[in-house]
Amino acid sequence: MATETTGAEAAAHSEGGSLVFHPMDQFIVKPLFGHGDVGLFTITNVTLWLFLAVASVIALMVLGTSKRAIVPGRGQSIAELAYGFVYKMVEDVTGKEGLKYFPYIMTLFMFIVFANFLGLLPKSFTTTSHFAVTVVLALAVFLTVTILGFVKNGTAFLGLFWVSSAPLALRPILAIIELISYFVRPVSHSIRLAGNVMAGHAVIKVFAGFAAVAAISPLSVLAITAIYGLEVLVAFIQAYVFTILTCVYLKDALHPHH
């Protein structure tokens, strides 16, 4: 995984006095059992860590709150904090009308948070660094809010692309820009998450390679520690950004007017 700090893997060997790095090897999808090509039904390292992310969410939100004590334990406290945080976000951005979609948004947030944080464990695999994962999440949001927009508003949903406050001559041009911007949403939504996660993990791997050089090893270890701390923050921020953008898109579907 991304955070493994053994210099032997990040800097495979020294050729002609220069280190050879392979920071992207950590993102290779491999069969979990045996070797060979990855097929449609092959159980891979991605499959394993996706399952662990889902299992972690269930463990916290179901098992952690099963006792429902008046004085909550650690698990219940974390679950309640997460619930309140996302609930307030949905309410603030979409209004009371958007709260009926809270379970879906809460599920998205918790899955991305756990997938990001599990990816910070040594020897693990960061599933949210793969566009195959983030694109599916982004497309699910895009299709959901688009269908919801037409179901709730009919053809009035198209008012989202018509900037009525602009001068009449500019409205057709702005409508085209708004339309393009709308269909770019799933692209930016998915790239933002995967790109940030992938970049941070690759940088950690590069510095891990420098740790094999005795002269700069202490500086490399300090850099790894600092970047790892930053990645912990990024893991939460990217989940938050993905979720709040989902709320913004939901708001547009519920209230499609400029």
Rank of each mutant, 00 (worst) to 15 (best):
M1F: 11
L120P: 08
I177A: 13
F33M: 06
V234K: 06
I227V: 14
L148R: 01
M1R: 08
T42M: 08
P103A: 02
Y182C: 02
G84E: 05
Y228S: 10
L60P: 10
G64E: 07
A226F: 11
A208G: 15
H258Y: 13
T65M: 04
T225G: 03
K123H: 15
D25S: 15
L148V: 01
V248R: 13
M89R: 03
M198V: 06
A226S: 06
V38I: 11
A253S: 14
F21A: 02
V145R: 05
V29N: 00
I177V: 14
F85M: 07
G159S: 11
M89C: 06
F157H: 12
I112D: 06
I28C: 02
F207M: 15
R68G: 06
T107I: 07
F236S: 02
V203F: 07
V135L: 12
A69H: 09
E9H: 11
I216A: 02
V234E: 06
N116Y: 05
E231D: 10
N116Q: 12
G36N: 06
M1Y: 07
I173M: 13
V38S: 03
S190Y: 01
T107D: 04
A202T: 09
G95L: 00
A199W: 03
V232M: 14
I204M: 14
L250H: 02
A194T: 11
Q238T: 05
Y87S: 12
F111Q: 01
V187Y: 11
T246W: 09
E231M: 14
F161P: 09
N196A: 04
E178D: 12
S165K: 11
W49L: 13
F41T: 15
K100N: 05
E178M: 12
S77P: 00
L160V: 08
M89D: 08
F161D: 08
W49M: 11
F27R: 12
T94Q: 03
E231P: 01
I112K: 02
S217N: 13
D92S: 13
P218S: 09
R171S: 10
N196K: 14
S77L: 14
H13R: 12
V62P: 05
I244Q: 09
F33N: 01
H201Q: 15
L233G: 02
T146D: 08
F27K: 04
V151E: 13
A175M: 15
L230M: 14
I105R: 00
M106Q: 11
L193Q: 07
F183L: 13
I204D: 01
V151C: 03
M106P: 00
Y240H: 14
T126V: 12
V62I: 14
S18Y: 05
P256R: 03
T94K: 05
I43E: 01
A253Q: 09
K100W: 03
M89P: 10
V206F: 07
V135S: 14
V197Y: 00
R68N: 15
H13M: 08
I224W: 07
A199G: 06
V184T: 08
V20Y: 09
G36M: 09
A214C: 00
V136T: 10
I78L: 15
F51T: 15
T128H: 06
